[in-house]
């Protein structure tokens, strides 16, 4: 635990030692605003909730999270610091978890900084703040899922642009898997069971209910297992690829 926290602190502090964290957070807040107010029709709906805000998050994360995750391992391999890091008296999973946690914490910071919109909606009406809190947690969990994919893709290459493109593509796949457009296009003869289990892999299936404030333990479990699986895969990929 101690090693993870040391690596976490280094990584997290490093985001703020460079302009990266600031640029990331600012762009995140601006695009969030555009999505919510311009595309989501926040005012026009006349409802005191944050549904337009949260429903755009999967699409916002599709580009923002890979940008954050792409450097996680690709840069370590490119600069050779991976050799320094992994010859320190730590285990590989300390490094994988510490780095992931730092990026995830930055996502958390970005999300927390969207609080003005929560203030706004509380000023204008009387929203269910429990629903909003649940949706925040769900959104953060989903960003963790995206990040975990990004961690693994970043480990596959020395080139962070390639890592970015791979991550965006895979995240896109996991978004559309649960979308009705795709699910409706399945032929009739495929058993519903298959369609359901397929849909269960998609982010939207789990996020939709969460963003409406229904914090189901199964959805939380899904994101937990999803993150764990991709981080585990990151470890395996790093182990295989570190010598190249």
């Amino acid at each position: 635990m101690n090693m993870i926290s040391i690596i976490f602190r280094r990584e997290f502090a490093n985001y703020f030692a460079t302009p990266l964290a600031y640029i990331f957070v600012v762009i995140f807040l601006i695009t969030n605003g555009i999505f919510t107010f311009e595309l989501g029709g926040f005012y026009a709906r006349g409802q005191a909730d944050l549904l337009p805000f949260f429903s755009f998050h999967p699409w916002l994360y599709l580009f923002m999270v890979p940008a954050l995750a792409m450097a996680l391992w690709a840069d370590e391999r490119k600069s050779g610091t991976i050799e320094l890091l992994l010859t320190l008296p730590i285990n590989l999973h300390h490094a994988v978890l510490g780095k992931f946690a730092a990026a995830w914490a930055l996502m958390g910071v970005a999300l927390v900084l969207t609080f003005p919109i929560w203030v706004t909606v509380n000023y204008l009406g009387e929203p269910d703040n429990g629903v909003i809190a649940g949706a925040y947690i769900g959104s953060w969990l989903m960003s963790g899922g995206f990040l975990a994919i990004g961690s693994c893709m970043s480990a596959t290459t020395k080139n962070s642009v390639i890592a970015f493109v791979l991550t965006v593509s895979l995240c896109f796949v996991f978004i559309v898997i649960g979308s009705p457009i795709l699910l409706d296009s399945f032929p009739q003869w495929i058993p519903q069971f298959f369609v359901d289990s397929f849909a269960a892999l998609g982010f939207l299936t789990h996020y939709d209910s969460v963003s409406k404030g229904v914090l189901d333990i199964r959805d939380i479990l899904f994101f937990g297992v999803f993150i764990f699986a991709w981080l585990f895969a990151s470890g395996v990929v790093i182990e295989i690829k570190k010598a190249n």
Binding site: N14, A17, T18, G80, T81, E83, L84
Partner: peptide, 10 residues
């Protein structure tokens, strides 16, 4: 290590 890698941003 060869080339003395370190975290340049730090």
């Amino acid at each position: 290590p060869e080339g003395a890698p370190s975290y340049g941003d730090m």
